Amino acid sequence: TETYTFDSEDQAEEFAQRAQKKGYTVEKRKENGKFKVRVE
Results as ranks from 00 to 15, higher is better:
residue 20 Q to M: 14
residue 12 A to K: 00
residue 28 K to Q: 12
residue 21 K to S: 11
residue 2 E to P: 08
residue 10 D to P: 06
residue 14 E to L: 09
residue 13 E to Y: 06
residue 38 R to F: 13
residue 18 R to Q: 13
residue 12 A to Q: 04
residue 30 K to M: 13
residue 2 E to W: 15
residue 10 D to H: 09
residue 36 K to S: 10
residue 40 E to W: 14
residue 19 A to N: 05
residue 21 K to E: 14
residue 35 F to A: 02
residue 2 E to N: 13
residue 22 K to N: 14
residue 9 E to L: 08
residue 16 A to S: 06
residue 3 T to Q: 06
residue 17 Q to D: 10
residue 4 Y to L: 04
residue 4 Y to C: 05
residue 32 N to R: 04
residue 9 E to S: 05
residue 17 Q to L: 09
residue 3 T to H: 06
residue 11 Q to P: 03
residue 7 D to I: 06
residue 29 R to P: 01
residue 25 T to M: 11
residue 34 K to V: 10
residue 6 F to R: 00
residue 33 G to Q: 04
residue 10 D to N: 08
residue 18 R to K: 11
residue 28 K to F: 14
residue 23 G to M: 02
residue 28 K to C: 15
residue 3 T to M: 09
residue 18 R to M: 13
residue 18 R to C: 15
residue 20 Q to A: 13
residue 16 A to G: 04
residue 29 R to A: 12
residue 13 E to G: 04
residue 36 K to R: 08
residue 40 E to K: 13
residue 7 D to Y: 07
residue 12 A to F: 02
residue 29 R to K: 12
residue 6 F to Y: 02
residue 8 S to I: 05
residue 19 A to I: 09
residue 39 V to P: 01
residue 24 Y to L: 13
residue 25 T to I: 14
residue 37 V to R: 00
residue 22 K to V: 06
residue 8 S to M: 08
residue 39 V to M: 04
residue 33 G to M: 03
residue 21 K to A: 12
residue 1 T to H: 12
residue 21 K to Y: 06
residue 23 G to H: 03
residue 23 G to R: 02
residue 6 F to S: 00
residue 18 R to T: 10
residue 10 D to F: 09
residue 3 T to R: 03
residue 16 A to D: 01
residue 38 R to E: 08
residue 36 K to D: 05
residue 19 A to L: 14
residue 13 E to S: 06
residue 37 V to Y: 01
residue 23 G to Q: 02
residue 1 T to F: 14
residue 16 A to V: 09
residue 40 E to P: 04
residue 2 E to H: 15
residue 9 E to I: 06
residue 19 A to Y: 11
residue 31 E to D: 07
residue 16 A to H: 02
residue 5 T to D: 07
residue 1 T to V: 13
residue 23 G to T: 01
residue 13 E to L: 07
residue 13 E to Q: 07
residue 22 K to H: 13
residue 32 N to A: 07
residue 13 E to A: 06
residue 1 T to D: 11
residue 33 G to T: 03
residue 30 K to S: 11
residue 38 R to T: 14
residue 11 Q to K: 11
residue 22 K to G: 11
residue 22 K to S: 11
residue 15 F to W: 04
residue 30 K to W: 14
residue 34 K to S: 07
residue 30 K to H: 12
residue 39 V to F: 05
residue 37 V to I: 07
residue 31 E to R: 03
residue 31 E to N: 03
residue 23 G to K: 02
residue 33 G to I: 01
residue 20 Q to I: 14
residue 19 A to H: 08
residue 36 K to T: 14
residue 11 Q to N: 05
residue 27 E to F: 10
residue 14 E to Y: 07
residue 35 F to D: 01
residue 31 E to A: 05
residue 38 R to N: 08
residue 28 K to M: 15
residue 22 K to M: 15
residue 25 T to F: 13
residue 2 E to D: 12
residue 17 Q to R: 12
residue 8 S to D: 12
residue 25 T to G: 07
residue 1 T to N: 10
residue 15 F to R: 01
residue 23 G to W: 03
residue 29 R to E: 11
residue 14 E to D: 11
residue 10 D to I: 11
residue 5 T to V: 12
residue 31 E to V: 10
residue 13 E to D: 14
residue 17 Q to V: 11
residue 15 F to G: 01
residue 21 K to N: 12
residue 6 F to E: 00
residue 16 A to L: 09
residue 2 E to F: 15
residue 33 G to E: 05
residue 38 R to V: 14
residue 12 A to C: 05
residue 26 V to K: 02
residue 29 R to I: 15
residue 8 S to H: 09
residue 19 A to W: 13
residue 32 N to I: 02
residue 15 F to K: 01
residue 23 G to Y: 03
residue 6 F to H: 00
residue 20 Q to Y: 08
residue 35 F to V: 06
residue 11 Q to Y: 05
residue 18 R to A: 13
residue 17 Q to H: 09
residue 20 Q to D: 04
residue 28 K to E: 05
residue 8 S to R: 09
residue 38 R to W: 09
residue 32 N to V: 02
residue 14 E to K: 09
residue 12 A to I: 00
residue 30 K to P: 07
residue 17 Q to S: 10
residue 18 R to N: 12
residue 12 A to V: 02
residue 7 D to N: 07
residue 27 E to Y: 11
residue 4 Y to Q: 03
residue 31 E to G: 03
residue 35 F to I: 09
residue 34 K to P: 00
residue 26 V to C: 08
residue 27 E to W: 08
residue 16 A to E: 04
residue 13 E to R: 05
residue 4 Y to T: 03
residue 36 K to Q: 14
residue 14 E to G: 05
residue 2 E to Y: 15
residue 9 E to V: 05
residue 31 E to I: 08
residue 40 E to T: 15
residue 27 E to P: 00
residue 9 E to F: 08
residue 39 V to W: 03
residue 6 F to W: 02
residue 35 F to Q: 01
residue 21 K to I: 07
residue 36 K to A: 11
residue 18 R to W: 14
residue 7 D to Q: 05
residue 17 Q to E: 12
residue 38 R to H: 09
residue 34 K to T: 06
residue 6 F to V: 01
residue 17 Q to P: 00
residue 26 V to L: 02
residue 31 E to L: 04
residue 7 D to W: 06
residue 21 K to M: 10
residue 11 Q to I: 08
residue 6 F to M: 01
residue 7 D to G: 04
residue 25 T to A: 09
residue 32 N to M: 06
residue 8 S to N: 12
residue 34 K to F: 10
residue 29 R to G: 09
residue 8 S to W: 07
residue 3 T to P: 04
residue 11 Q to T: 07
residue 26 V to N: 02
residue 29 R to Y: 15
residue 9 E to Q: 07
residue 21 K to L: 12
residue 9 E to T: 03
residue 21 K to Q: 10
residue 8 S to G: 05
residue 2 E to A: 13
residue 28 K to A: 09
residue 40 E to A: 13
residue 10 D to T: 09
residue 5 T to W: 15
residue 3 T to L: 08
residue 3 T to F: 11
residue 11 Q to R: 08
residue 19 A to G: 02
residue 21 K to T: 08
residue 22 K to I: 08
residue 15 F to I: 02
residue 39 V to S: 01
residue 40 E to L: 15
residue 6 F to L: 01
residue 11 Q to D: 13
residue 37 V to L: 03
residue 3 T to G: 04
residue 37 V to C: 02
residue 9 E to Y: 09
residue 27 E to A: 08
residue 39 V to T: 04
residue 35 F to K: 01
residue 29 R to L: 15
residue 27 E to K: 06
residue 23 G to F: 03
residue 26 V to G: 02
residue 7 D to R: 03
residue 25 T to S: 10
residue 4 Y to A: 03
residue 34 K to L: 09
residue 7 D to V: 06
residue 40 E to F: 14
residue 15 F to V: 02
residue 26 V to Y: 03
residue 20 Q to N: 07
residue 13 E to V: 05
residue 14 E to W: 07
residue 37 V to A: 00
residue 30 K to N: 11
residue 14 E to R: 09
residue 32 N to T: 03
residue 35 F to E: 01
residue 8 S to Q: 08
residue 32 N to H: 08
residue 2 E to G: 14
residue 38 R to Y: 14
residue 24 Y to K: 08
residue 33 G to D: 08
residue 31 E to P: 00
residue 30 K to F: 15
residue 32 N to K: 07
residue 9 E to K: 04
residue 5 T to L: 09
residue 33 G to K: 03
residue 25 T to C: 15
residue 37 V to K: 00
residue 21 K to G: 08
residue 5 T to R: 03
residue 35 F to Y: 11
residue 34 K to G: 04
residue 27 E to M: 08
residue 11 Q to H: 07
residue 18 R to H: 11
residue 22 K to F: 12
residue 16 A to K: 05
residue 3 T to A: 05
residue 40 E to M: 15
residue 36 K to F: 14
residue 10 D to C: 09
residue 15 F to N: 00
residue 10 D to A: 12
residue 13 E to N: 12
residue 30 K to C: 13
residue 16 A to P: 00
residue 32 N to P: 01
residue 40 E to I: 15
residue 3 T to W: 15
residue 13 E to C: 13
residue 33 G to P: 01
residue 27 E to N: 09
residue 16 A to Q: 04
residue 26 V to A: 07
residue 6 F to D: 00
residue 15 F to S: 01
residue 3 T to K: 03
residue 33 G to N: 07
residue 18 R to S: 11
residue 7 D to S: 07
residue 26 V to D: 02
residue 29 R to S: 14
residue 4 Y to M: 04
residue 4 Y to E: 02
residue 27 E to I: 12
residue 5 T to G: 03
residue 11 Q to E: 15
residue 22 K to W: 12
residue 37 V to E: 00
residue 36 K to L: 15
residue 29 R to W: 15
residue 7 D to H: 05
residue 1 T to L: 10
residue 6 F to P: 00
residue 40 E to C: 14
residue 2 E to R: 15
residue 38 R to P: 00
residue 13 E to K: 05
residue 10 D to G: 08
residue 10 D to K: 09
residue 17 Q to Y: 08
residue 30 K to E: 13
residue 28 K to W: 11
residue 12 A to M: 09
residue 14 E to A: 11
residue 39 V to I: 14
residue 22 K to Q: 13
residue 26 V to S: 03
residue 19 A to Q: 10
residue 33 G to F: 03
residue 8 S to A: 07
residue 17 Q to I: 10
residue 11 Q to G: 06
residue 34 K to Q: 10
residue 19 A to K: 07
residue 25 T to E: 11
residue 17 Q to T: 10
residue 3 T to D: 11
residue 1 T to A: 13
residue 37 V to H: 00
residue 19 A to D: 01
residue 32 N to Y: 04
residue 28 K to S: 11
residue 23 G to I: 01
residue 25 T to H: 14
residue 19 A to P: 00
residue 2 E to S: 13
residue 7 D to L: 06
residue 24 Y to N: 06
residue 32 N to S: 06
residue 16 A to C: 10
residue 32 N to F: 05
residue 31 E to Y: 04
residue 31 E to H: 05
residue 11 Q to M: 11
residue 9 E to G: 04
residue 6 F to I: 00
